[in-house]
Design a protein around this nucleic acid. Structure first.
Length: 361
DNA sequence: AATTCGGGGTT
DNA sequence: AACCCAGAATT
């Protein structure tokens, strides 16, 4: 093991705060291994998502579905409902595909190699390495945003991302030790998350202070370089919230592909750029629609959205459980089966504004 | 290589 | 506002 790797593992042993879903160095010495199901679930949830945002979702998922077999047997709509608010909903769809593939094709046990894991839905280069290293003690190299930043600074790499990805991966691989690869992987990421932060890195207390090239050059705070991103345009559309006298709501499940794919929401128009012709208002049914005097404002990865909200009272019809609404379809969900927490954040914003409008009538 | 995927916290 | 986040899939 290199001196660099050893010094980082030493730092990790002294400073690591063990994540709730992991066993730490102490547990490893007891001979226990992390549950691959929990490692997988946490790593998928943590893709582009902060630990604070994930914590409650992870607890809920593992309570509802303690094993991969339990999750594989779950209803699609139930999983989408529990994922609501966490974002990147393709992760939830792939989560189910992956769980069902593990049960159907691997006897209910996750593959224990990087290559085997890579073949599963929703598991890419990072997650495959993370599971292999953390759950199965394989000497694989994890490269996430933290590791990219740490390597760019340690070696003073000025080539911008994503072009520098291959170079940074090679630099990280050269440091990965054969011993304790899972702890080492978490150590590099912890270093990036707590000391080698994007801005104002705490170089003074960094275990790699001495060997860090960017620290010596004074370039640490400006690394890694990144190619500039495009500005976000603003789009807008209309949603229609229909409520029945008994308190039911007309909901639809979006098609599985595209933005918010597979999630529950309100019927509405498409979303057009402000410079383009507005989408034709097409209410889902004939009613006395009233406009709510407030818009739902939301920002996605690559555009801003302003949603006009229309509300109306419509006659009662027999209801449908939300999880039973198939993709592309719509139905009235009875009052006692409707949970606003089942909605993605945009649709919940619209609901909250409409709710206020109904209350004021 | 570039784009499409959420949402919230930090600066 | 811009940037960031234990990225993956698609084009």
């Amino acid at each position: 093991m290199s001196l660099l790797s050893a010094s980082l593992l030493d730092w990790y042993d002294r400073h690591a705060r063990v994540m709730p879903w992991r066993t730490g160095p102490q547990a490893r010495r007891d001979g226990t291994r992390p549950d691959p199901y929990r490692v997988w679930l946490s790593e998928v949830m943590l893709q582009q998502t902060t630990v604070a945002a994930v914590r409650d979702y992870f607890a809920r998922f593992t309570t509802l579905w303690p094993t991969v077999a339990d999750l594989a047997a779950a209803e699609d709509g139930a999983v989408m409902a529990e994922w609501a608010g966490l974002g990147y909903y393709a992760r939830a769809r792939n989560l189910l595909k992956c769980a069902r593939a593990v049960v159907a094709d691997h006897g209910g046990a996750f593959p224990d190699t990087r290559e085997g894991l890579l073949s599963l839905p929703g598991i890419g280069p990072y997650t495959a390495s993370a599971i292999a290293a953390i759950a199965f003690d394989r000497a694989e190299t994890v490269v996430d945003g933290n590791v990219e930043r740490v390597m760019a600074r340690l070696h003073d790499v000025h080539r911008p991302l994503p072009a520098a990805k291959r170079e940074l991966t090679a630099l990280a691989a050269a440091l990965t030790p054969a011993a304790r690869p899972g702890d080492y992987a978490q150590a590099v990421m912890d270093l990036g998350a707590t000391i080698c932060t994007p801005r104002s890195p705490a170089c003074g207390i960094c275990p790699w202070r001495a060997p860090c090239a960017a620290r010596a050059a004074g370039t640490a705070p400006e690394l890694p370089k990144k190619t500039p991103k495009k500005a976000k345009p603003t789009r807008h559309g209309i949603v229609y919230l229909a409520r029945t006298p008994s308190g039911g709501w007309l909901l639809e499940r979006r098609p599985d592909k595209g933005l918010l794919g597979g999630t529950l929401g309100w019927p509405g128009t498409g979303w057009a750029d402000l410079a383009e012709p507005l989408p034709d208002p097409e209410p889902p049914l004939d009613a006395d629609w009233r406009q709510v005097p407030a818009e739902a404002l939301h920002t996605f990865t690559h555009f801003h959205l302003r949603l006009t909200i229309m509300v109306a009272e419509v006659p009662d019809v027999s209801g449908t459980p939300p999880a039973r609404i198939p993709p592309g379809d719509r139905a009235v969900v009875p009052r006692d089966l409707f949970r606003p927490s089942d909605l993605p954040t945009l649709m919940r914003k619209a609901f909250d504004l409409a709710q206020g409008a109904f209350d004021n009538v």
